[in-house]
């Protein structure tokens, strides 16, 4: 079963062990070596984001942002294929994004 791990990065990260660049590289390698990796990306800085909305008349609104008002912003994601939620939660807990004040939200991918 596929789960998406949404990596919610803290906007004011606490310095702490486990979330350095090397930790991310090691985690990424482990996910791929375990044969559970489906897809995943890290996202560019939130200042590069642009919001698009189309109203009922089909008019487009394009706005710079959104800027981080929340304490956490989406910093990247993985989609992994594992047997059950417990396995997905274990992978989320190993992810460096779950440390230093950040968190990882685990969402099952809908099956149709």
């Amino acid at each position: 079963m596929k789960y998406m791990l949404l990596i919610q990065a803290a906007t004011d990260p606490e310095a702490g062990p486990g979330c350095e660049v090397e930790d991310w590289m090691a985690y990424d390698k482990t996910v791929r070596d375990a044969g559970i990796f489906v897809t995943g990306h890290s996202l560019a800085d939130l200042t590069t984001a642009t919001r698009v909305q189309v109203n009922a008349k089909g008019e487009r609104t394009i706005v710079d942002g959104p800027y981080a008002e929340a304490r956490e912003v989406l910093g990247g994601y993985y989609v992994i294929d594992v047997p059950d939620l417990d396995a997905a939660l274990d992978w989320a807990a190993r992810c460096p994004g779950s440390r230093g004040g950040g968190s990882v939200v685990v969402r099952p991918v809908a099956e149709f």
Binding site: M1, P83, D84, L85, D86, V106, P108
Partner: peptide, 10 residues
Amino acid sequence: REARIPFRVP
């Protein structure tokens, strides 16, 4: 069912 919480003893 949908998030597949397993039936297992930790």
